Computed example of a mutant assay.
Amino acid sequence: MNNWLRASWPTLAIMLGASVWGMIWYPLRMLAALGVTGTAAGALTSGAGCLFVLLVRYRSIATVRWHWLLPALALAAGVTNLGFVWGSIHGQVMRVLLLFYLTPAWTALFAHFILRERLTWAAAGLAALSLAGAMTMLWSPQLGVPLPGNLAEWAGLVGGMGFAMSNVLILKTSRVLPDMKGEMRTATIFGGAALFSACASFFEAMPAPPTGAHLGTAALLVLGLGFLLASNNMLVQYGVARIPANRASIIMLFEIVITALSAWLFAGETPGPREWAGGACIVLASALSSWVHRTKAKPIGEAPPGAALGDDREARGQDGPRAMV
């Protein structure tokens, strides 16, 4: 029994992490209702998360050396974070998340140019499957060309591109800077998200800021979210380091289930047939993408579980560290 429980901890850690990411949109909307805009919420919560990582794991971060990949990774993480946060606050959560999850399409493209990976027929097919899912979800006779219908959906789409770029750059970083600790990548991601959102906040109309009791509630939410997201990130990294990568990515798709349930319960959002059909294509492409990358990236028996926290995992574009989602 004890051995079974010990073997189950990594799976439970990933499921818990996916559940947190699937529900994080709700406290973000609470912040928006208190007068904290999406850009400000992204900056404040990511800044709190970065501070938490720096305080808790500062010894792992102190020895890092400078490289141009660090600001590039920070910028990609900033786009990822802002796209998801702003989109989930202002749009239909499930549609924004599904557009965000077009990762296989963008990962295949970015890996081809940045990592010099050959674009295989399998990768091209998975990219086409995910894009077909998006077209199914977005198409309607009234709207014509299947494009995102509002700024929130565009934000989710661009955020997903940033997520794919982040994963590719994380793999590039692990190759160029093999001695870099995972905590440094996490701090870079959170710090980049905070700086990018802070700069973007100057271009968003600011409502009346929270005052009095609302100010205290907003401050507690920001600090709580920062602590939660940083802890959740490290929890998920614990899980994905200890189970096969293809299995971990399937478990991570639990996030979409939690998002659908929470959007239905708290926002009254019920996906229609086109959303379900398109979402099924996107989820299937994400799941198959992890399996394809896993089987091609590493021969059986090359390394024990957890020997390299990140290389093939980030390459497949599914469960690398994330600043917000």
Rank of each mutant, 00 (worst) to 15 (best):
T136K: 05
S88Q: 06
F113P: 00
S166L: 15
K172Q: 14
T173R: 07
L98I: 15
L115Q: 12
D179Y: 08
G162R: 04
P178E: 05
A164K: 12
G162Y: 03
T136F: 04
S130L: 03
P148A: 07
M94C: 09
R118P: 02
W154Y: 12
A134K: 11
G78K: 00
V145M: 14
V145Y: 11
M137N: 02
A122K: 14
G144Y: 00
A105D: 00
N150W: 13
L143C: 13
H90K: 10
A128L: 15
V93N: 06
E183T: 08
G91L: 07
V176M: 04
L126M: 12
A132Q: 06
M137D: 01
S130P: 00
L115P: 03
T120C: 07
P141W: 07
M161I: 12
P178L: 05
F190G: 02
T103W: 14
A132C: 14
W86Q: 06
V96G: 02
F100N: 11
G144A: 04
L70H: 10
G87Q: 02
L73H: 06
F84W: 15
P146C: 00
W68S: 09
L177W: 02
A155N: 01
D179M: 11
W106T: 15
M180H: 01
V79N: 02
N167G: 13
T186F: 06
G91H: 05
W86E: 00
F84A: 11
R95F: 05
W121Y: 11
T107E: 08
L147I: 14
L82A: 14
M180A: 07
R116D: 09
H90I: 03
W86H: 09
G149I: 06
T136D: 01
W106F: 15
